[in-house]
């Protein structure tokens, strides 16, 4: 999933300052799962904003709603007819959702209420971990299903570096060294031969591309 965190309230208040009528829109998918932009968070943010407006005697009218996804047109379409009644949208989606909504309604400012972070997993309640950078060339099978691009601070394909100690990464003693995990899991799986391989330089063009990447699937088009 795509993870995100809500911006500090002060920043959001400053962002909506020029607007009187604000539509607060959440997204029930990824950012709902990571408790940053789902229905519950939309409700909380809406009341916090109204409370602040009352305390500072500012004129503010808000309405809250949550789309199933903000990055897919058929769901965004639910805003049609409603959005025109507002000066701005405060979006609790990831950056992709904010931009998708803005593309459909280019004349209304869509304000980002979240800081989009990373592709990750929910490890346990209240803990999300980054584990994929979308490099476009997945090689997890060579590294015991532990991503060196994401989880090694130096994205080493032939690790670990000399700083790996007691299973921890030199960069942050709270973070496990990805290569320590790779080596021990390969050992457990009896796949140590994979470690002897010298892996060639990565093809980052699949990640960096020539500007933004795109996927075209003719079989999906109608």
């Amino acid at each position: 999933m795509i993870t995100a965190e809500r911006k500090p309230l002060d920043e959001i208040i400053a962002m909506i300052l020029p607007f009187k009528k604000v539509l607060v829109v959440g997204c029930a998918s990824c950012v709902g799962e990571c408790a940053a932009g789902g229905e519950k968070e939309v409700g909380l943010l809406g009341s916090a904003l109204r409370m602040d407006a009352r305390m500072t005697t500012k004129e503010l009218e808000t309405r809250e709603m949550t789309l199933e996804r903000q990055c897919v047109y058929e769901f965004i379409d639910r805003l049609t007819g409603l959005i025109d009644q507002y000066d701005a949208v405060l979006s609790l989606a990831c950056g992709a959702g904010v931009q998708a909504v803005a593309e459909v309604f280019p004349n209304i400012p869509i304000l980002p209420a979240l800081n989009t972070s990373f592709l990750g997993q929910t490890k346990e309640a209240g803990l999300w971990l980054e584990n994929c950078r979308g490099c476009g060339d997945c090689r997890l099978h060579l590294f015991a299903d532990i991503c060196p691009v994401t989880r090694c601070a130096k994205q080493i394909f032939n690790g670990p570096c000399g700083g790996s100690q007691d299973g921890k990464c030199e960069v942050n003693p709270e973070t496990p060294c990805a290569w320590h995990l790779i080596v021990t899991r390969l050992e457990d799986r009896n796949q140590l031969d994979l470690l002897e391989e010298v892996y060639a330089p990565a093809d980052w063009s699949k990640k960096e591309g020539a500007g933004p990447r795109k996927i075209v699937r003719e079989d999906q088009q109608n």
């Binding site: 032939n158 670990p160 700083g163 790996s164 100690q165 080596v183 021990t184 140590l192 470690l195 002897e196």
Partner: peptide, 18 residues
């Protein structure tokens, strides 16, 4: 002196191979 110890020499071998 880094860890995992058994792997340090494998990594040296990789450097030699490279």
């Amino acid at each position: 002196f880094a860890d995992p110890f058994f792997y340090r020499v494998i990594r040296l071998a990789k450097k030699v191979k490279a």
